[in-house]
C-alpha cells in the first residue's frame, strides 16, 4: 500500500454564445450634462464583474476614463433587451452592443466638439484623459466636460447611441446537422498531477497547470478571478460533487453545504494559470467568452492522472475514493 503519483493532460475548446436560439443583446449609451456616460442594459451581473468590463469597454470606445462610465442594468423598465447571462456570452455579445452604442455616442460628441472648435469632426481624436483635440494639433482642444455642456445647453444635442448585437438563429440541418451553434471558440490545455492513496482511494491534487486561450484579456485581474475560480470548480466536479452519490438512486442526497461536498480551503490545489490571447475577429476588442470553458479541462486531466497513478479507469463522474477503491479491488482480483 502506497501513495502513488500520476500526471494527466486534457485539451478542450468552448463555444461562445447560443445562436441555436438567436442571440441578441442591446445597449444604450448617453452622456450626462458634465460628460460622464451612462450605459443602460438589462443584463445581469452574476458576480463575475459584468458591470466593470462593460464600463471599460464603453470608456475605451468613447475615449474617457473608466471611472466616468456608470452602468445601469438589470431593470426591464429602463434597459433594452438582453438574452441573458449564460452560454459564455456576456462579455462578447453585450460588449459588442456597448461598442456600437458607444461609437454612435462618440460620433455625436465629436460633432459637437467640431462645432466648438470650428473643424471637421473627422479631424478630431480623444486623448483618453478627458479631452478632444485636433489630430496633430493637441493645443487645439476642448474638454469632454465642456463638450457635453455645450451639447446640452447650447446646441440641444443628445450625445447618445444605440447598440445591438445579434447573431441570427441557426437552424440545424435535419440530415447532416450542419449548423452554426456559436461564434468564436476559447481553448484550454490542463496538466494535472495527483497523489492517490491506494489504501484509501483518496486523491490529493498536487498541482493544476492550466493554459487558457481567451481572445483578448479585457481586464486581466478579472480574467484571473474567473479562471482560478473555474479551475477550482473543475476539480470539485471531478473529485467531489454530486447531488446523488449513488445515482440513479435518489437517496443519500446532499441537502446543504455540510453534506454536499466541495473542496475546502485545505483542499485547494496549487494552481498555475497562463493566458494566451488570440483576438477573436468578431469579439469586442478581440475578447472571447472564457467563463464556462475554464471549469472543464481539469476534469478529464484529473481522471487521466488518476489512471496514470494507479492504473484504474473511473469513467463515471465524480471520481470518489469509493469508486477508486472498488476499481483497485477489482484490479487486484483480476491480477491474481
Amino acid at each position: 500500500m502506497a501513495i502513488r503519483r500520476g500526471r494527466g493532460v486534457a485539451a478542450v475548446n468552448y463555444p461562445t454564445g447560443m445562436n441555436l436560439g438567436g442571440d441578441p443583446s442591446q445597449a444604450l449609451v448617453h452622456s450626462t450634462p458634465t460628460g460622464n456616460f451612462m450605459v443602460t442594459l438589462s443584463s445581469v451581473d452574476l458576480g463575475q464583474g459584468l458591470k466593470q468590463v462593460m464600463a471599460q469597454i464603453c470608456a475605451e470606445t468613447i475615449g474617457v476614463k473608466t471611472e466616468q462610465v456608470i452602468i445601469d442594468t438589470a431593470d426591464t423598465d429602463t434597459g433594452p433587451h438582453c438574452m441573458g447571462t449564460f452560454a459564455s456570452r456576456g462579455t462578447h455579445r453585450i460588449g459588442n452592443a456597448v461598442i456600437q452604442a458607444a461609437k454612435e455616442a462618440r460620433q455625436v460628441m465629436l460633432e459637437v466638439a467640431a462645432e466648438a472648435l470650428e473643424v471637421d469632426a473627422g479631424d478630431l481624436e480623444t486623448d483618453g484623459e478627458g479631452n478632444i483635440h485636433v489630430k496633430g494639433a493637441p493645443q487645439k482642444s476642448i474638454s469632454i466636460f465642456d463638450t457635453a455642456l455645450m451639447a446640452h445647453f447650447k446646441l440641444g444635442r443628445s450625445i447618445s447611441g444605440r447598440g445591438m448585437f445579434l447573431v441570427p438563429r441557426s437552424y440545424p440541418e435535419v440530415e447532416t446537422g450542419a449548423m452554426k451553434p456559436s461564434t468564436c471558440y476559447a481553448h484550454a490545455c490542463t496538466v494535472a498531477e495527483v497523489d492517490v492513496d491506494d489504501e484509501t482511494g483518496e486523491v490529493t491534487v498536487v498541482s493544476i497547470k492550466n493554459v487558457f486561450e481567451i481572445g483578448r484579456a479585457l481586464n486581466p485581474k478579472m480574467v484571473e478571478q474567473q479562471l482560478v475560480g473555474g479551475s477550482w470548480m473543475g476539480i470539485s466536479h471531478a473529485l467531489y460533487e454530486t447531488t446523488e452519490p449513488y445515482y440513479p438512486a435518489r437517496d443519500h442526497a446532499g441537502t446543504d453545504f455540510n453534506e454536499y461536498l466541495m473542496p475546502g480551503p485545505g483542499d485547494i490545489a496549487p494552481t498555475e494559470i497562463v493566458v494566451l490571447e488570440r483576438p477573436a475577429e468578431d469579439g469586442p476588442y478581440g475578447a472571447k467568452g472564457p467563463g464556462e470553458m475554464c471549469a472543464n479541462p481539469q476534469i478529464p486531466a484529473l481522471a487521466n492522472a488518476i489512471f496514470d497513478a494507479v492504473g484504474v479507469r473511473i469513467d463515471m463522474m465524480p471520481i470518489t475514493p469509493e469508486r477508486i477503491l472498488r476499481a483497485l479491488k477489482e484490479q487486484r482480483a483480476t491480477a491474481h
Partner: peptide
C-alpha cells in the same frame, strides 16, 4: 496568472488604453 504575450503577437495590433488593464472592480 501569466499573460504569455509571445503567442499570437502578430494578431494583437490594437492599442488599448482602458482595456487590457487589471482595474479594480467598482463593485468589489
Amino acid at each position: 496568472m501569466k499573460l504569455a504575450k509571445d503567442y499570437f503577437a502578430d494578431q494583437r495590433t490594437e492599442e488599448l488604453k482602458e482595456l487590457g488593464q487589471g482595474l479594480q472592480r467598482s463593485d468589489v
